[in-house]
Design a protein around this nucleic acid. Structure first.
Lengths: 286, 286
DNA sequence: GCCGGGCGATAAGCGGCGCTTATGATCGCA
DNA sequence: TGCGATCATAAGCGCCGCTTATCGCCCGGC
């Protein structure tokens, strides 16, 4: 078994077609035919069912492909270990100022290492983690982190984003019910649970939020709020990290704060992960 | 980068010597020389310092080798996925009858899969997990499980093992202090923390246990207890899974029960891990 | 101080294997 | 029934990773 074979395998599974896979891999179709046969022989199981129209993985094949994906991710970890890069996933304002404090301290301790902060859209940091696109991530809870090592490292109160000419814009604080009648921004990207948590759904009185337009990320959300079409909720740090002309932030009172977890695949191949976790753990302790 | 190269790398790091590594790998020494150079070129860093007497990994090299190890373990996961085997680590009586219930239910749901229970000596199941020798393990707590996904799935009261002719052998229950004067079996294999927890050290009154002979595993321990040279502590299931002529078990009262965690490397390449975890989680819920 | 042994690096040649192109076999579909 | 997909097979070839042979280096022993 070689990584080349696993790379081929994954691409074949993704395209479901030897021809197209060959194209994407810059090899000829028989090369893949041959590789599949070799792997099937070595592993002793049929991995794909062939039919005119393409190939589809068998039950075992699906699992093998998934295992192959993880192996390739681990191999990427070898590269990362050599390059001393650590890809850190987050969304929007991440873990607030903890993020920058961690970055500074990590750089101090590991001057040879390079952090690569990678921002994702709503709920995307958890997906990225799962897909092996990042080595570690600051994940906004709630999120499904089963199968990942994680710990809550940060919490911050929430705020309400309003157009500056909104009748409530001058208030010192707002409750969820204060803005119950305002259309609320939401997203189709993140899991249901995530959206409901942010929207405080159901409300204390059992009612549902008044859903407004959807958006895919902070910028889109804030643009629309500044345009006056809706209001939004966010963590306090969002007020410090993102501004928009025509947008004001007011503390949201009586709602539970955002909890941010640091999550990473246990047993990650990238040794910087452990170092990063240690720094975050230390700085989040006070 | 190919698995072959990573295999070579790890062996070279283990032997610290190209010649001996070549021997173990059934290739010639220049082949390794060449592989190291190729990898160093591809990764853009020096991995080993060469000196007369052998090679030693650089700082980066150490990390790369570690990442390579994980990658090879992941590749083993591909084999496991194909073979549908799940290696389950445990020690002694493991998680008691939960173990057998899980095995039955797992076999029912995944008839094509094969469980490979692997028993380890005291504290060895956690090491085995770390070394990638098992895919999942029932770990007796306390244990260091940082970096692993884990959850407590089982608890059971403790018992005292005594020679049958011991003056306390007929009692319905014993406290730690009742046997404070008896030499207590212990082991040098497990971490300090583990040994102290089992020995209830320090005792409620602040005193230390009276340490008796050491042993490496259940059989040795029970043999010695049956011989009358010491007493031992164990989980209740040990009384049901192991018997010895001349040995009796008495409940240990007033001591906290054993907690058993199911632990696995998050993001394991073996898909059966998730299936197994699901079964255990379900059966341990009642 | 010199020589021998052990180490890794280099050189040159060779052979396997994984690629290529060309073609065959099979099925679905019009 | 023939066409256009698909994957499988065949045959040839070239790369690359192996081998053996040798070198250069450092050290330790006498």
């Amino acid at each position: 078994m070689e990584l080349r074979q696993l790379r081929y395998l994954v691409t074949i599974a993704e395209t479901g077609n030897l021809g197209r896979a060959a194209e994407r891999l810059y090899v000829s179709q028989p090369a893949l035919s041959q590789t599949v046969r070799a792997l099937e022989g070595e592993l002793g199981v049929r991995l794909f069912d062939r039919h005119p129209g393409g190939v589809s993985p068998t039950a075992v094949g699906r699992d093998v492909v998934e295992a192959a994906r993880r192996t390739l991710a681990a191999a990427e970890g070898v590269r990362a270990a050599a390059a001393r890069v650590l890809r850190v996933g987050f969304e929007a304002s991440g873990a607030g100022d903890l993020t920058s404090r961690v970055r500074a301290e990590f750089a101090r301790r590991h001057p040879e290492a390079r952090l690569e902060p990678k921002r994702y859209d709503w709920g995307g940091e958890a997906e990225a983690l799962r897909a092996g696109l990042v080595d570690v991530a600051f994940v906004w809870l709630p999120a499904d982190l089963t199968g990942f090592a994680h710990e809550v490292v940060h919490r911050e109160p929430r705020v309400v984003g309003l157009p500056e000419n909104h009748r409530l814009a001058g208030r010192a604080g707002l409750t969820v019910m204060d803005v119950a009648d305002e259309p609320l921004m939401w997203t189709e990207r993140a899991p249901r649970e995530w959206v409901d948590w942010w929207a405080v759904n159901p409300r204390p009185d059992g009612s549902a939020p008044k859903w407004g337009p959807t958006n895919d990320n902070v910028e889109e959300m804030l643009d629309q709020v500044a345009d006056g079409v809706a209001v939004c909720f966010g963590p306090a740090s969002m007020a410090r990290y993102y501004t928009r002309p025509g947008l004001v932030w007011v503390p949201l009172v009586g709602a539970e704060p955002l909890r941010v977890a640091l999550a990473w695949p246990a047993g990650s191949a990238n040794p910087l992960v452990a170092a990063f976790v240690a720094v975050v753990r230390e700085l989040s302790r006070p």
